[in-house]
C-alpha cells in the first residue's frame, strides 16, 4: 500500500470514530437522565466533533483531492466509512451508552497517548490536544460504570448486561491490518496489539470496583475498519447527510 494512501486510511479511521461516536452522543441531548447529563454528554460529543474536524481535515489534506472534513463526513457512503463497529452501536439505555463509552474511551486514551509520539508532527499535535479531552471522557465514563455497577440492583443488572452485549465489538480495536502495520513501520502509529494488556488491566480493575464481571474473551465482530459495517450506520448517515444530499452544491 502506498504510503500516503495508508496514512489517509488511518486518518479516516481516527476521524470516523470521533464523528460517529459524537453523533451517537448528540442523540442524547434533551433526553438524558438529568440535566447535568445533558450537559456532560453534549460536552463529550462536542469534543469528538472538534476532533473529527481535525482528523478529517488532515485526511483530506493528505489525500490531496481537495476534500475537507465536511466533504468527507457528508458525502461518503457507508462502505467508505472506516470507524470501528463499537461506536456505531445504538445508544440503548444509559448503561449501554456508558459501556460503549468506557470501552472506547479507555482505548482512545491509550491510543492518543501513543500517537503523541508520532513521527508525523501533525498527528502528534492533534493527539496531544485530543488526549486532554479524552482523559476527562475516560474519567467520567469509568465513574459511571462504577456508579451503575455498584448502585442499585437494577443498575447493576443493566450495567452488566451492557458490558456483556458490547464486549464482542471490543476485539476489533486491537486488531492490526496492513494499514496499522504500515503506520507502525513508519513510526506514525503504535502497535495496536500492545494496547490490549493495559486496556484489559483498566477493565479488570474497574469491573472489580464496580462489582461487575468482565466478559470472557470470545469471538470478535470486525469489519468497520474495512468499511463492512452494521446496519445501524446507514441510518446514522441518512440523518447526518440528509441536507447535503437533498440540496447538492448549497452552502450552509
Amino acid at each position: 500500500m502506498a504510503e500516503q494512501e495508508a496514512l489517509f486510511e488511518y486518518l479516516l479511521r481516527l476521524g470516523d470514530n470521533a464523528l460517529i461516536l459524537g453523533h451517537r452522543l448528540s442523540e442524547w441531548c434533551g433526553h438524558a437522565p438529568a440535566l447535568e447529563e445533558d450537559l456532560a454528554l453534549s460536552n463529550v460529543a462536542l469534543d469528538l466533533i472538534g476532533q473529527t474536524q481535525l482528523w478529517l481535515n488532515l485526511a483530506g489534506e493528505v489525500e490531496g483531492k481537495g476534500r475537507d472534513a465536511n466533504n468527507l463526513a457528508y458525502l461518503r457512503d457507508a462502505r467508505d466509512f472506516r470507524n470501528v463497529l463499537l461506536v456505531e452501536q445504538p445508544n440503548g439505555d444509559f448503561a449501554v451508552t456508558m459501556a460503549r463509552q468506557f470501552y472506547f474511551d479507555a482505548w482512545h486514551y491509550l491510543l492518543l497517548r501513543e500517537l503523541m509520539n508520532s513521527t508525523d508532527g501533525r498527528v502528534a499535535e492533534i493527539a496531544a490536544k485530543g488526549l486532554k479531552e479524552v482523559t476527562y471522557h475516560l474519567e467520567r465514563s469509568r465513574e459511571w460504570v462504577v456508579r451503575l455497577g455498584d448502585g442499585t440492583e437494577e443498575s447493576h443488572e443493566r450495567m452488566q448486561a451492557a458490558l456483556d452485549d458490547l464486549w464482542m465489538f471490543t476485539g476489533e480495536l486491537f486488531e492490526a491490518d496492513e494499514v496499522d502495520q504500515e503506520m507502525v513501520r513508519r513510526g506514525v502509529g503504535p502497535d495496536l496489539g500492545a494496547l490490549r494488556e493495559p486496556w484489559l488491566g483498566l477493565m479488570r480493575a474497574t469491573a472489580e470496583e464496580a462489582t461487575l464481571t468482565l466478559p470472557q474473551p470470545g469471538w470478535a465482530q470486525r469489519g468497520g475498519k474495512r468499511g463492512i459495517h452494521s446496519e445501524h450506520l446507514g441510518y446514522i448517515l441518512a440523518d447526518l447527510q440528509f441536507l447535503q444530499r437533498a440540496y447538492p452544491n448549497a452552502t450552509w
Binding site: 464523528l19 453523533h23 448528540s26 442523540e27 441531548c29 434533551g30 440535566l35 447535568e36 445533558d38 450537559l39 453534549s42 460536552n43 460529543a45 462536542l46 466533533i49 472538534g50 473529527t52 474536524q53 472534513a69 465536511n70 463526513a73 457528508y74 446514522i236 440523518d239 447526518l240 440528509f242 441536507l243 447535503q244 448549497a250 450552509w252
Partner: peptide
C-alpha cells in the same frame, strides 16, 4: 435538528446552543 445539521460547524454550534439551554434550565 442536531443529528441533521448540514455541516460539522453547524452541528457543533447547534449542540452547544441546546446544551446552553439545559444550563439555563439548571
Amino acid at each position: 435538528w442536531i443529528t441533521r445539521a448540514p455541516t460539522l460547524e453547524r452541528k457543533a454550534i447547534l449542540l452547544a446552543k441546546v446544551q446552553d439551554e439545559a444550563g439555563h434550565g439548571l
